[in-house]
Amino acid sequence: MRAAMKDGARGASMTPRGIAAPVLGGWSAASEGVPANVRTISLQAVKIRMRSVGNIQKITKAMKMVAASRLKGAQTKCEKSRAMVNPFVRLLGDTPGAETEQTLVVPVSSDKGLCGGINTAVVKYSQVLNAMTPGVTYNVIGDKARAQLTRMMPQQINNVIVDTTKQPLTFATASAIADQVVARNAPKTHIVYNRFASAISFKPSVATLMSNEELEKAAEEGVNEFDSYEIEGPDRSEFLLDLSEFKAGVMMYNAMLENNTSELGSRMQSMENSSKNASEMLAKLTLLYNRTRQAAITTELIEIISGASSLESKE
């Protein structure tokens, strides 16, 4: 499928004029008396192109339908996962600007392409985060961000997790991934993802996770209100450790669902555009095909008539 799409991309850049060029060449060759049949060769070229454009259109339409049907389920799941993030933000605050020596950036991207600009957006924002803060390392999720980031800053990537969307995402999977992230012991972690707004729009977002030490510091400095609460359970540092780990799981689950939903919405949109482009191109090619065919018939008629009339005039 991928090879077919690449072929389509090349086809898209080809203007009808470009296709017409070999046709003219064919005519001039015919006048020099090269093989018979030469008039139909140009027609065949157009016909082959028409068939391939038609096939591409079928594929893009199918991809659009698949994305659209999966979008509904993904959207419900994603919207249900949003509520859980709120209590943690309310209790522990949202401090993306906190100054720390090291920062771990977790770009969440998709494994497959052909879904518009969502992966590029994630990579761009991750790059800006790198410029903004010293000591950035990456823990990349998804193949597309990996491909782009390894080219730009191979030394800073310390972990890559791919193939997370093969099966429906569960909280257990997200927690396992969050475990990997927490195991890096970074004082501050940014999760970069696309938040789903609607099938045609998404918002690049940065969720921030602080380690338990940082949270403790913040509680002492009054950046969050944690010290005004009574604690039922283990002592403060252990409590904050459990809390920050649970928060990591919850945030990761939400971020991955959001990004997955945005991916489907974006794919639906971009596949609709390519289907539209394909059908426009097909219309142009059909017109060209018919014109060429008619031109050939007209030429043949003229030849027959002029031949006949020359015979008549001889008689």
């Binding site: 949003r82 993030v85 709120n86 933000v89 309310r90 949202d94 993306p96 761009k124 924002y125 790059q127 800006v128 970069v192 938040r195 918002k203 690049p204 977002s205 940065v206 969720a207 921030t208 945030m251």
Partner: peptide
């Protein structure tokens, strides 16, 4: 990196 780049949203942008 570009002047048209929008600010990202954070967790609290959409929180209650």
């Amino acid at each position: 990196t570009s002047p048209t780049m929008e600010h990202p949203a954070t967790s609290s942008t959409f929180a209650s």
